[in-house]
Amino acid sequence: MTTDDSVVGAQDTLDDLDATILAAAREVIARLDPVPAGLTDRIKFEITLAALHAEIADLERMPLAGVRGDDTAYVPTESVTFTSSTLSLMVTVAVGDESPASPATEPTVRVDGWVTAGGAEVELFVAGQSFQAVSDAHGRFVIEGVPRGSARFVLRAPGGAGRPVITPTMEI
């Protein structure tokens, strides 16, 4: 291995040319190996979750056979149940039955949910977006136009009482 003194100028103080080289290197490296899109948003979300001190719900997956949408279409659905010490949540995801507005538009899904409390605040985080709903008197809620991706639900009891509940990630 060489020592620092064997390379010309290694002991010199940094100058403007060094600054120019490093700035150019920064530009090149940022283009060749960019920070993945959405990474900082995902980090901020994880930090928010960590700060919630939420209870993490357990996942019970219950795959169902697809249900018949109409005579010909076979609409796949999946029902998933999450349980916690305070609230439980069952969600069913249906692939959007309407065609996307244009071929360039990503298809969306409809999420039907049921919480073991009426008036619970439900927040769905998926693909860097969040969707809010409040369960009705029977604990039901519907969220439409949801993009596909890794999703997590945060539940708060009516009036925000008690610890929030966060589900593990599910693919929708």
Partner: peptide, 15 residues
Amino acid sequence: SIGPTRGRCLAKLRV
């Protein structure tokens, strides 16, 4: 290492 002197790595690149 780099700073306050140029250091071996940046010096090599510069040369």
